[in-house]
Each structure stands twice: as structure tokens, then as C-alpha cells.
Nucleic acid binder design. Structure first.
Lengths: 324, 324
DNA sequence: ATGAAAGCGCTAACAA
DNA sequence: TTGTTAGCGCTTTCAT
């Protein structure tokens, strides 16, 4: 392994000088600088980031904790997080908590040990890992956690838009299908807002929830089957994710219920599947790209010691497609 | 920040002793050990992984370079890579090369600088980053790169199975739709094997390729539109991924072509979408979980200095569903 | 404009 | 069984 010392010796200077040209700090003669660059090139030298982290007490690494990475929305979010991190000279260390509170806590500690400069935390555990008493900048996604700033999409507006759209399309018997409300996520607000808006129009909303260990395709479909078994009259469904919406549509079609003629379905997220599905799925779009960009920006501010709002809410919009 | 020194002082021992109990190395009295544990607890101490990496010249980090992370197959692969890495006390640093050769090279250098112990490389660039002359263990996925061991699913078998299945289902006019063959990926073999098996049955195969910057939903659909515009008679399509298969089915349905009555479609991967789509998509299953598990295992062997086969091929299987 | 030297937090000989 | 000490590769203060 080539070190600064090797470069220094070959260039006939000291490590201090090499360090200076690498970090572009202090005065260095053009001649020396060029010589050092040349030798670094010849030796294919790359500074050891570990040693540098130790000396500078800064790793330039962001930890990202997700409840699940194979979910289209989260993988898209992750992709953008990586992109924006990279643009800002940060690397991403990935943690997949799988909705396990213990694993989540372990991951937080692991990231702390790893000296990451900040953490993006999408916590989906019951036993809220609220004992998060870390001195590290942490940004929480879609969840309020005591003492931490958080970011989320405008779930309230999303629920409202979904209700208004279904009403406009003439739906009378409404249902909501989503993840467990017990998880106390901010996204639960989608349901409450939906229900409230429906109530204003004099309608009630049947509520169906997945079990805790959500994000499971089979479970979505099973749930959809149950919905139709007991409630043949439902003609408007708001699903809390496009994945669930797709499962609903699939099961409806199998039950000879036409979408959108007899049943209107609206999802949430606007993942690629929504446009790929047949019929294309109407949805409430929350932009993973915007969330990621804003999140990285907020984390960098926190890392720089600046203050940020405790709460950041990003817009959503209705994307009308074929399923309503 | 709490350091070993703090723990040592409070426990009335030296850092060596603390290090020993942490690493469970050498002789230590029960009494001392307990005292140290207790103090570590009180101080909420966690060893600094950066310092440890520097001293041990081992980071316990695996680099993962993917061409795209929001693609269902890759995100699933990533999820499992993280899981198996974690089980073996390794962390994952994520890199999203976005099919850009320059970015890919930069990432390799970055990971080297970061002192990762090994790299999982899924390279999808034209200008093959073959100048990969790194002394680090690198496992290549789905691509032969000079000097590197590689892992892939049995693409040859996959193509063969797809052809045989379509033939059995009575298809006569075959087509293949996939990513650009120019990329020189091992997955191209799916096409060659498919074509060969069709030829044995006296059939030719129309070949449609995406442009280089693949993994794009709109492009898939556009391509499918073109296929049907020019070739109304096609009755059997092998798509090189389930995502492409879904796009094909959707466009077919819009063109009033019934799947599977008039057109049989088979995909590849067996991502969740395949079972969620309507009709459910017949596919060649390559297990992301198996690939990830085997990959981590191989990388750990390489890191341990053991020899591994230059070539590791994992089984695929036909999953019959509704689209054929 | 450049160098010497201390220190980041930890591990690992070598001593005792 | 425990301590002393010298690094790991880099940054940074203080000299020169």
C-alpha cells in the first residue's frame, strides 16, 4: 500500500508538504506542487480515508437506515440519497433494519462507532427507538421522534386529495387499505385526512390494516381478498402505497370487478410500477428525489452545526391515471 | 466522545487491558473484565471503528457497486447483500454507478481509499472498467472481467428454458426483447441460448434491444410499441427482465392483444412484480438471495486469502404463471 | 515555502 | 495477569 510517506520520499519532500498539496492548504511553490502531483500519479497514490477520518475527526460518511430496501419507494429514495450524498463528497453506509427495533438500535450504535457524520433514519418499529440519545445529527423520515428533526411528505394533503378525487369520480362506498396504524408513522395522517374529508361529504370509510410486519406482497393480496369478500359494495379505495393499490387491482380483476368502472383505486408514492401497471394507477405522488435532496441538504446543515426547522414537509400532487 | 482512555482511567487499568477485554484476547481476571464492562456500560462507550480499522488494517466494510439501485432486481440483491454482510459483521458502503464508466472507476478508487476489504461489482458500462488493477478482492457480477472472479446465474440454461417453455405452449413466431447486447454482459447469453434452442425447432427469433442507458420504464414501453407495430404476428416473447415483460404485456393489452391467448410472454428474474402483475408473469427465476449469500461467502474467502473458482454459476428455474 | 513533531483512538509486540 | 511502547497514515500547530 502506498502511503504519503512513500510519495514524500520519492518527491524529496516531507509528508507535511504532501498533505498540504492534497488538501490545498498553505503556501506551496508551483514546482513542488507539480512534483508531488506527478509522483502521486506515478505511484497511483490515494490518501487513506480511514487515517484521514481519524485525524480530522470527520468521516464524510452518511448512515442510512431503512425499514426495507427492496421496496420500490425506499430503493428509489436510497438511490437519490446516494446520488446527492456523492455530489457533496459524502459516502453512504447502508443499514436495513427490517422493522426490527433491536436491529435498529444496533445499527445506530454501529454507525456511531463507525463515526458517520450524520444519519438518515426511516424508523418503522413499534417499540420506537426513542432512546436515541446520540450526539450525532439524525434526521427522521416520516416519524416524529423526541428531540430529532424530521422530514415527510404532506400526508395530510395527500389524504385529502385522495378523498376529493374519489368523490369527484363518484365513489360512494369508501375504504382505506394501509399499513398498521399502530406504527404511529406520520403517514397514518393519510388515513385520518382521508376519513375526515369523506366525513365532510357525509361518507364513512372502512379501514383495513396490514399486520405490523408490512411491506409484504402476499399479505397485501390476502388483505385485498378479505376486503372484497366482506364488502362487495365498495366502489372507491385509497391504498396507502402503489404496491398495495396494485394488489387491490389485481385481486379485484380476479373477482371480476372492473377497475375503474366498478371500483376506483388510488395509490400513494408514484413509484414506477404505477405507470407500468395495467390499468395505470392513479396516485398521490411524493417525490423520492425531492425528499432525498432536501434530506441530504438538511443533514449537511446539521453537520455544519447550523440550525434547521424541526419539521420539513414536502408537497404531494395528484397524478390522475386509469385506475380512477 | 468517550475513548478507551476514559474507560481505562475510570476502571483503574490501562488501555491495553480495555482493548483486551473488548477483543477478548489474552488473559484477564474475571474481576477486571467485569469492572471494565461495567465502566463501558456506564460511559456508554463504543470503540471507535475508524481507529480500529487503521490499527488493524482491516475495515470490515464491503463496497457494493450497482448500475442502478431502484431496479427491483438490484434493490433486492442489495437488500440481501446487506443482510449477509451484516450477519458476518461487515458493513456495506453503497455506490450507484448509473452505468457511467467514469463514475464506476471513481467509485472503485474511492472504495480503495476507504480501505474496504472487498468489492461486489455489477458493472454495466461499455468502456469496461477493465483497468481495474486493484490489489483488493473484487467479485464481478454477470460480467467477465480480466483477472477477476465472477458470479452469475445460469443465463444459458435460462434462455434454453424460456425457449422450451414457449415452444411447449405452442408459440411459433418468437421475439426477444432485452437490454443492449453491446454491453457484453453474461446475461446476453440468455438471448443466444434462446435463439439456439429456437433454431433447433426450426424457428427464428426477432431481436429487439434497448439502448445503452437501459433500466428505463418509458423506453421499455416505447420499444414494445415498436415491436407490435411492425410484427403483428409475434406470439411468443422472451423478455430479459420481468420489468420489460410487464411493459410488453401492458402495451399488448392496449393493442387489444390478449395475453396469454394470442401472445405468450416470459420474463426473467422473478421480482415481486411478476406475481403482482395481472396476468401474473411467467418467468425464469434467478434468486437474488442465493446470489447475495454466495457472493458474500466468496468475498469473505477472498478476503481471508483463500482461493475461489474463477467462475460461479447459480441455478435458475422456470416459474410458470399466467402470462404463457 | 517547508519541516519537525505531536496526536487522532486503537492494537499488538514485548516486558514485567 | 497487566503495563509500556511503538506504530497504523494522516492532519495540524509551531518552528524555521
Amino acid at each position: 500500500m502506498t502511503t504519503q510517506k512513500d510519495v514524500a520520499e520519492k518527491a524529496g519532500v516531507t509528508v507535511t508538504t504532501v498533505s498540504r498539496v492534497i488538501n490545498d492548504r498553505g503556501y506551496i511553490s508551483e514546482k513542488t506542487r507539480n512534483k508531488v502531483y506527478q509522483v502521486m500519479d506515478e505511484l497511483n497514490y490515494r490518501p487513506n480515508a480511514v487515517a484521514r477520518s481519524l485525524a480530522k475527526k470527520k468521516s464524510n460518511i452518511l448512515g442510512v437506515i431503512l425499514p426495507v430496501v427492496h421496496h420500490p419507494f425506499f430503493s428509489s429514495l436510497l438511490s437519490y440519497l446516494e446520488e446527492y450524498a456523492y455530489q457533496n463528497d459524502y459516502k453512504v453506509m447502508l443499514c436495513n433494519s427490517q422493522m426490527n427495533a433491536k436491529k435498529e438500535k444496533e445499527y445506530i450504535n454501529m454507525l456511531r462507532a463507525q463515526q458517520v457524520d450524520g444519519i438518515f433514519l426511516a424508523s418503522h418499529t413499534l417499540d420506537i427507538a426513542a432512546e436515541i440519545k446520540v450526539d450525532l445529527p439524525i434526521l427522521s423520515f416520516d416519524r416524529k421522534i423526541e428531540g430529532l428533526p424530521y422530514i415527510c411528505s404532506d400526508n395530510d394533503q395527500g389524504g385529502k386529495l385522495a378523498a376529493e378525487h374519489l368523490l369527484e369520480q363518484g365513489a360512494k362506498k369508501l375504504a382505506y387499505i394501509g399499513g398498521s396504524l399502530k406504527l404511529n408513522l406520520l403517514s397514518n395522517q393519510r388515513y385520518y385526512a382521508f376519513k375526515e374529508r369523506a366525513a365532510e361529504a357525509g361518507l364513512t370509510v372502512k379501514n383495513f390494516q396490514c399486520q405490523l410486519d408490512s411491506f409484504n406482497r402476499d399479505q397485501y393480496q390476502q388483505l385485498a381478498v378479505n376486503v372484497f369478500k366482506k364488502n362487495k359494495a365498495i366502489d372507491g379505495i385509497f391504498a396507502s402505497s402503489d404496491l398495495i393499490a396494485a394488489a387491490v387491482i389485481k385481486v379485484a380483476q380476479k373477482s371480476m370487478i372492473n377497475v375503474p368502472e366498478n371500483l376506483k383505486v388510488i395509490g400513494y408514492d408514484d413509484i414506477e410500477l404505477a405507470q407500468l401497471y395495467s390499468p395505470e394507477i392513479t396516485t398521490i405522488r411524493q417525490s423520492a428525489e425531492n425528499i432525498a435532496q432536501k434530506s441530504v441538504q438538511l443533514l449537511l446543515k446539521l453537520i455544519a452545526g447550523e440550525n434547521i426547522d424541526r419539521r420539513t414537509v414536502l408537497n404531494v400532487e395528484l397524478i390522475k391515471r386509469e385506475s380512477t
